[in-house]
C-alpha cells in the first residue's frame, strides 16, 4: 500500500512556542489513521500544516506523493475536511450549505446534485433539508458539518475532533459513518482526545504530546509497548493487609489495589493470571463476588506513555 501522506521532520513555531517538534508520520492508503493527544498537543496544527493553511518552519509534507502547497488545487480536490468547529453559513439552508461547499469541488451540476443528495442521505439529514443551521440541534449541526466536508466524495478525509460536545448516540452514528466512508475507499485521518473513539475505529495510531510523536503503531502494537497487559478486578470483602502483600508476590503481578471492597490487580505479561489469583483466594477461604478481566485500553497506553514522558521532562 502506498503512502497517502508523508511528513518528514516537520517543525512549526509560534514565536517562542514550538508547536510541532520534528514530527514525522505516514498515512497509508485505505486506513483510518488516528492522531491522539491531549488538548494542545499539536493535532490541529499538524492537520493545518498538511492542508497548507499554515506555513511551517522546517520539514516536508507530501500528499498523494506530491509536495503540498496552497495552490495544489489538484490535490485539494481529493481532500475533504471536517473541522473541529461547525463551519457553515447561517444564512443558507442545510441543502444550500452542502451544495455550496460541494460546488467548490464539483462543477458538474447533475453530478453535484447526486452527491449532495447522497451526503444528506448518508448523514441522515433528509428531514432537515430546508432548515437553516440556527434551527438545528447540536448533533444535527455536527452532521451537517460532516456532510459539507464529505459530499464531494474525497479520497482523503480529515476529521478533526468531530464529536466534541455530541451526545453518545450521535457520536456512535458519526463513528459508524466514518467507518463506512473508510470501507467505501476513503483514507481517513482522525484526531481526538477520546481514547475509546480512536480505539474503536482507527487501524493505526500516532500518539502526540507537545508537538512530538511519542508512540506510533497499530492498536495492538501500542498496547504491547506498555508494561501492564491485563487488569483483573474482583469484588470481595474482608481482605487483610497480609493477603494483599501475598497477592503482590504472585508471579507477573505489577500492582495491587484494594478499595471499597474491590480488588484490582494489574499484570505485566503472563498467561492464566486469573486462575492463579482465584486459586489463592480459594486457598485462603475468601469469598468473592463478580470477577472480571480487562485487557489494556489505549487509555492505559496514553497515560503510561505521556505520564512517563512528563516525568522525564520535569
Amino acid at each position: 500500500m502506498s503512502n497517502v501522506i508523508e511528513i518528514n521532520n516537520l517543525v512549526k513555531r509560534y514565536k517562542e512556542l514550538v508547536a510541532l517538534d520534528h514530527l514525522s508520520l505516514e498515512v497509508k492508503e485505505g486506513e483510518i489513521f488516528g492522531l491522539l493527544g491531549p488538548n494542545g498537543s499539536g493535532k490541529t496544527t499538524t492537520i493545518n500544516c498538511i492542508l497548507s493553511l499554515l506555513t511551517y518552519d522546517k520539514g516536508s509534507i507530501k500528499v498523494f506523493g506530491k509536495e503540498m502547497t496552497p495552490s495544489s488545487y489538484d490535490i485539494k480536490k481529493q481532500i475533504g475536511v471536517v473541522m473541529q468547529n461547525v463551519a457553515v453559513f447561517n444564512e443558507l439552508t442545510v441543502y444550500e450549505n452542502i451544495d455550496y461547499f460541494c460546488g467548490l469541488y464539483i462543477t458538474d451540476k447533475e453530478l453535484r446534485k447526486k452527491y449532495v443528495e447522497e451526503a444528506i442521505e448518508f448523514t441522515g439529514l433528509s428531514d432537515f433539508k430546508k432548515f437553516r443551521p440556527g434551527k438545528l440541534s447540536g448533533g444535527l449541526l455536527r452532521r451537517l458539518n460532516i456532510a459539507c466536508g464529505i459530499a464531494h466524495k474525497p479520497k482523503l478525509i480529515f476529521f478533526d475532533e468531530p464529536t466534541v460536545a455530541v451526545d453518545p448516540q450521535s457520536r456512535n452514528k458519526i463513528l459508524e459513518g466514518i467507518s463506512k466512508l473508510n470501507k467505501d475507499g476513503a483514507t481517513i485521518i482522525y484526531t481526538s482526545h477520546y481514547m475509546e473513539e480512536v480505539e474503536q475505529i482507527c487501524s493505526r495510531i500516532t500518539i502526540m504530546d507537545k508537538g512530538r510523536s511519542i508512540a506510533n503503531g497499530s492498536k495492538d502494537e501500542l498496547k504491547k509497548m506498555i508494561t501492564v497487559t491485563e487488569h483483573i478486578s474482583i469484588e470481595t470483602c474482608n481482605l487483610l493487609d497480609e493477603h494483599i502483600k501475598e497477592l503482590s508476590g504472585l508471579v507477573h503481578v505489577y500492582e495491587v489495589n484494594y478499595n471499597d471492597n474491590l480488588l484490582t490487580i494489574s499484570f505485566s505479561g503472563g498467561k492464566h493470571n486469573i486462575v492463579r489469583v482465584l486459586n489463592y483466594l480459594q486457598e485462603k477461604n475468601i469469598s468473592f463476588g463478580r470477577v472480571y478481566s480487562e485487557l489494556p485500553t489505549l487509555n492505559d497506553v496514553f497515560l503510561e506513555i505521556t505520564g512517563t514522558q512528563l516525568r522525564d521532562s520535569l
Binding site: 492542508l51 493553511l53 475536511v81 473541522m83 461547499f101
Partner: peptide, 8 residues
Amino acid sequence: VRQNCSAI
C-alpha cells in the same frame, strides 16, 4: 478555513 482548503 474550509474554503481555503477546498479546490477553488
